[in-house]
Amino acid sequence: MNAVVSAYLLRENTIKSRVNQLANLTVILAEHTLQTIYSAKIALDSIEDVLRVSNIQTEQDYRKFAGQQQQFDLLQEKTKSNPIIDVATFVGKDGEIINFSRSYPPPKINLADRDYFQWLSTHDDSDAFFSLPVQNKGNGKWVFYLAKRVSGSKNQFLGVILVGVSVEVFSNLYERICSSLGNGSSVTLYRKDQRLLTRWPFVDNMIGKRGVYRHQRVIFG
C-alpha cells in the first residue's frame, strides 16, 4: 500500500510540475511575441511619421515622395536596424510596389490580392492590420505583415505602408525553447481569429488555417 501511495504522489507531483512548466513557458512565449510585434509596429509607425511630416495631400504627392532614393534608404535603415523586419515597403493605390527595402528601383510586384491591401483600400482604418502569413513574392519566405493605410487630405486611399516579419523569428525561438518538451510536442502562434501564423515544428499546409489543436498556444492581435 505504501508503495502504491508513493507512486501516486510521485505521479501527481510530476503532473503538477509539468503544468507549472507549461504555464511558465506560455508566459515567456507571450512576452516574446508582444515584444516582437511591438518592435515591428514601432518601425511601421516611424515610417508613417515620415509621411505625416511630409504633408502628403494627393496620390501624385505620395508616389513622388515614396519613389525617391531617399525613401529607399529609409526603408533599408528600418530593416538593417531591426533584425526582425524582413522587408519594409511603400505600396501604391493600385497595389504596385513603389519602393521597398530590398532593391532600388523595385521589381514589378503587385500586392492588390493581399488581405491587408484589400481591407485597407476599402476601409478608412487608422489601425495597423495584421495579415495572414504569405510566401513573400520577393524571396519566397513565409512572412506576415503589419500594414497601415496611407490617406490623402480628403481621406482618399493613396496606398499602404508595411513591414514584414518572417515567421522564422517565432518558429526558430519555439524550437530552441521547446525542443526539450518531448516527442509530439508543438507550439503555435495564432491570430485572434484562430488562424495559425506559425508553429513548431513548421508545417507549410497548416499556415493560415483556422482551427484548435492540442498543443501549446500563443494568441495575439
Rank of each mutant, 00 (worst) to 15 (best):
D113M: 05
N2Q: 14
N205Q: 06
K41C: 15
V187T: 11
E168C: 13
T14C: 15
D204C: 12
F129T: 00
R52F: 06
L22Y: 10
V50K: 12
V167S: 11
W119N: 04
I47Y: 06
L75V: 12
A40R: 03
S186R: 04
G67P: 02
I85R: 01
R176G: 06
N110E: 13
N55Y: 14
S17W: 12
F170T: 05
N99V: 05
Q118N: 11
R149Y: 01
I177Q: 11
L132Y: 06
K141A: 11
F202I: 02
F129E: 03
R195T: 00
A40W: 01
E77M: 12
S126M: 03
P105Y: 03
E168R: 04
P201A: 11
Y145W: 04
E12V: 08
Q57G: 08
P201S: 02
I161W: 00
G159C: 15
L196S: 03
I28N: 05
G164I: 07
N155H: 05
M1T: 15
L111S: 05
A147M: 01
S126V: 06
L146Q: 00
L22F: 11
R199W: 15
F202M: 12
L181T: 07
V212M: 07
D115A: 07
I56G: 00
M1K: 02
T188P: 14
A23F: 08
S185V: 03
S151D: 01
A7S: 09
T89P: 02
K141L: 07
R217D: 13
E48D: 06
R214Q: 01
N110C: 13
V50A: 04
A3V: 14
D49Q: 09
C178D: 04
N139P: 06
F65C: 00
R195W: 05
A147D: 01
I109T: 00
V143R: 13
N24P: 15
